[in-house]
Amino acid sequence: MQLIFGTYTKGLFTSNLNPETGQLTDPIKISNLEEPTYFDLTTNQQLLTVGRIGQRGGVFNYKTEDHQPLLPLDQATTDGPTPVHVQVINNLALVSNYQTGVGQIYQLTPDGQLALTDQFQRSGSSVLPQQATSHVHFMTLAPDGRLLVLDLGTDEILTYDFDRSTGQLGNQVASFRTRPGFGPRQLYFDRHNSNDAYVLGELASQVAVLHYSSDTGTFTQRQLISTLPDDWIGNTGGGAIQLSADGQFLYASNRGHDSIVIYQIQRISTGPHLQLIDIISCHGVFPRDFCLTPDGQYLVVGNQKSSSVVTFWINNTTGRLTIIDKINVPEPVCVKVNA
């Protein structure tokens, strides 16, 4: 099972995970691109990553070959900082720019070319010093095909009408405002009811359970739960969230507390409810990102500040984690399985 790691400054790396043992092979560098801090994989063996060349930041598309150097296909850059996130959905690439508050939408051709179809500029602020301006951190599509934009700087989740065939935005139809200082970072919809969603608040170290209305494009909050122990005092921030393959557990990482939190998803009449199971060490420092393997057997976390990648075995009955292996990867900040 091939894993790919994006890093803070050191390029992209790959490693094999043994599906029988959870052991990792030594990493191999497959690209020297600067600041490939987040990437996504297409269904036809392409890898689309944020990155930078000199003073120009943007997105870069590559063809992947098994453990071989990535083959450049196309790039779209501008004078300015590296984007923070990219998500590929079918032939669309949704690119979030944290520092500038800009969202961009690209169409991908079958041969990997990038065509900008729309973009928008956000503005605004919220209550914390980190929220002096807009910070577009994440974009995805709702179950009804509308575009959702998470603005960490303004504590908002914005809903736009969206034409998937042209990649163009329509009108903004709704805005959900989190509690002040929440800092929405990532959002994923429930595997059992696609109108329920889980949102990680980076600045608050909390997870919000929301319900989405396809009629109006609006969210309502059903639960807000901490990712930290009650007695924790110190600086920390949410890193990533992931749902288990069977939809029974939710995992989140804490950067600063250096831990992985495990919740059981309880199915009650009012919708999903998170019940804390455990908070364990990530066996490293600053767990920026992690992934779950498609077979549901392993969780793989990248610890940016300790330059390590750690695999855990997942108990599918309890959701609990057991450490299996640890390798050195320089400043890992994005972890994905190349299925």
Results as ranks from 00 to 15, higher is better:
101 G>E: 07
153 G>A: 06
165 S>I: 03
323 I>Y: 04
70 L>F: 07
147 L>W: 05
285 V>S: 01
71 L>Q: 13
49 T>Y: 03
338 N>Q: 07
156 E>A: 12
101 G>C: 04
194 S>Q: 13
302 G>W: 01
185 R>K: 10
126 S>P: 12
265 I>L: 12
295 D>F: 00
283 H>L: 13
90 N>P: 04
30 I>A: 05
15 S>T: 10
36 P>W: 00
167 G>C: 07
95 V>W: 01
212 Y>T: 14
56 R>S: 14
2 Q>N: 10
199 V>R: 03
143 P>T: 09
322 T>P: 07
331 E>K: 01
244 S>K: 05
18 N>I: 08
24 L>C: 12
126 S>R: 04
236 T>Y: 09
188 Y>H: 09
162 F>S: 06
199 V>C: 15
57 G>L: 01
88 V>W: 02
132 A>I: 11
331 E>Q: 13
306 S>W: 07
39 F>P: 08
155 D>N: 10
122 R>G: 09
168 Q>G: 05
193 N>S: 10
338 N>W: 10
181 G>C: 05
12 L>V: 15
51 G>W: 00
287 P>T: 12
187 L>P: 10
288 R>M: 06
29 K>I: 02
311 T>R: 03
197 A>F: 06
173 V>N: 04
125 S>M: 05
62 Y>P: 13
200 L>N: 11
89 I>N: 06
214 S>W: 00
204 A>W: 08
328 N>T: 15
202 E>T: 08
328 N>G: 11
219 F>R: 06
10 K>W: 00
168 Q>Y: 09
110 P>Q: 00
60 F>T: 02
180 P>C: 08
174 A>S: 15
262 I>W: 04
257 H>C: 02
308 S>E: 05
26 D>Q: 14
335 V>K: 01
82 T>E: 03
167 G>D: 13
307 S>D: 14
332 P>E: 01
48 L>G: 06
304 Q>H: 04
93 A>M: 04
219 F>G: 11
151 D>G: 05
276 L>Q: 14
23 Q>K: 14
147 L>C: 04
245 A>V: 15
30 I>K: 04
86 V>Q: 02
322 T>E: 14
224 L>R: 10
217 G>V: 07
251 Y>I: 10
85 H>F: 14
14 T>C: 14
54 G>E: 02
108 L>M: 07
191 R>D: 09
118 D>K: 05
328 N>K: 04
268 I>T: 13
106 Y>F: 15
